[in-house]
Design a protein around this nucleic acid. Structure first.
Lengths: 135, 135
DNA sequence: CTTGACCTTCCAGTCACTGGAAGCCTTATG
DNA sequence: CATAAGGCTTCCAGTGACTGGAAGGTCAAG
């Protein structure tokens, strides 16, 4: 299987697959003409990567998860720890974003949005509480 | 006022302020020794930037908002349009993250997290629905 | 006069790709 | 058999918004 078929089946751009090879996440064989050849096993890995990335795992997390995925003697506790840490990060991101949304939503609703210069949004930003953490 | 005082008062790292000068968001004067000197006006701009960044606006949005902030003849509609677009993006991010969290949370709870290799998280990633959008 | 805390510039690295150029390889058509 | 279209290759550069660090100038205190 050539790269574009693998890309299609895994749901990843071909560029991304080449990048994943560069950083050692997959190791497709090469045809005599130099083309990458993807086995079912490599395709499985790509699919696994696409899905774990879609769940927001970092590349390094994906690397660790992939190693565990391939290790039949793994401890599920190792997987769970990675997933739990990521879950906690997601929770933090969600609450940061919800706080942003709530503030911004209030400001947007307070603004008439017409031709006049008076603007509760700008005033709100000017007088908002100082930044407490980075988004 | 020197950069570290400005940084303290605006709630931004000095490095970030230098970066903001590089990209033309602020234009502090210079003392005879080459040190940056921040006026109250520049400090206000920095504070405005810190707060709009904390609300998740991109640098380019901040640039536009800052221009409107300084333009006494602005139309509040221009501000509102930028804010509304950003608000919509935040909503999308929140629902993406909530979807991730829900999936991941289920998987984490289903995993015993012990020494055995059997792992619902890895199985879940393997069999999850394909990625629909990028986080 | 030296120490230490400032300040300056510039370069490189982060993360996870993405775009584009230049150039082979393969397949279909005239 | 020549050519054109499309797929494949590598390599280089850029994204956003900083952040770290090196090398060196400046300043106030002791």
């Amino acid at each position: 299987m050539n790269i574009s078929d693998a890309a299609q089946r895994a749901g990843l751009p071909a560029k991304t697959i080449r990048y994943y090879e560069d950083i050692g996440l997959v190791t497709p064989n090469r045809d005599t003409n130099g083309y990458r050849v993807f086995s079912e096993r490599e395709l499985h890995k790509l699919t696994f990567l696409a899905r774990s990335r879609a769940l927001g795992f970092s590349i390094e997390d994906c690397r660790a998860l992939l190693a565990l995925y391939e290790d039949q003697t793994r401890a599920s506790g190792d997987v769970k720890r990675i997933a739990k840490e990521h879950l906690d990060e997601i929770e933090v991101k969600i609450s940061d974003l919800v706080a942003m949304r709530d503030t911004l939503s209030e400001l947007v609703h307070a603004c008439s949005g017409d031709d006049r210069p008076d603007c509760p949004i700008l005033k709100g930003i000017e007088h908002a509480a100082g930044p407490t953490k980075k988004p």
